[in-house]
Amino acid sequence: MLEFESDLSTLVAIIIPCIHSYVSTYLEWSCTSKQIQMALRNGTDRALALIRTLPRVSAFNLRPDPASRADGKRPRGQHGGRRHGYPQKGAKQRQTFPRLGFENGAVPFYLRIPKENYYKGHHLRRQYPPLSLHQLQTLIDTQRINPSEPIDLATICNTKIFSFNPGYRHFGFHLTDDGMDTFQAKINIEVQWVTEPVIAAIEKNGGTITTAYYDVESLWAIRDPEHFFQRGIPIMKRMLPPEDAVEYYTDPKFRGYLADPEKIAEERFTLAQKYGYELPDLSSDPQKELLLRRKDPKQVFFGLQPGWILIPKLPLHGMSPKKLGSI
């Protein structure tokens, strides 16, 4: 009995330093009187006190017994080692299983169905991941987007909440009409696809919207501007839209960036008539400069021209200021 106790106390002596701080904090918290602490000088008492503090055993804090797991060893010798559990002949021995969908010679299901070509031309179609007006309003309300500056792809991606992948043929965002009735922000936004009610929701609040096309290279750049600038290559020109997108991006009804501004002004008025709201006057607006700010059709970033290279403010690695000055 004594031996057992001493063994237990040595065991506890091993365990206790690991969790000593935990136990001591618990003891201080639970039993503040010194007498109780004195009573726990015995190792067994301390171990029992520790066990009392631990959570109950449940499925949450159990892990499987290590011996319960079968080892993945291939059987050898007399322990089923001749063919390692596989039969002498046939598909299981030679691993020659019929192909997926094979039906023993009958015309398989996946070939029996007539052709339909649902995915025809999928590699050419452009995708526009959705961004709803409700989500946009939330981004503004949570101060992830500053409405006093023009909003474009870089602004939306910089929230680190919404992004897109040009590698998957995503060509920017489609602003959808969810949350249209509660949208209240007054913004100047540039998106890649939009529908009529969304335009009305934005222009009703005195904002402006433009739809603009970005080619794949400029999409990669504007998706992560910092990464692009670190590459140290000149800012590219934004390419014009492809043939099948020209119609959309020159259409004043969709506020295309290649449309005639005068026709867009007419369409703004027409849309206000159609949806029955009073069109806020842009010319007398104090934020007129913000709301009418547009990129050049070949410009990728606001305020930066194609052909520019951005230099980091710190000297480049391996370049002394003297050397930089000589260049």
Binding site: G307, I311, L316
Partner: peptide, 26 residues
């Protein structure tokens, strides 16, 4: 911007074997 240009030899993008930078504004 010669400093950047000299420091980083700029490996450009090639699309369909055509160099975009030699046209237009560049």
């Amino acid at each position: 911007f010669p400093s950047v240009a000299k420091e980083r030899s700029l490996t450009g993008r090639v699309q369909n074997g055509q160099n975009y930078c030699n046209t237009g504004i560049f």
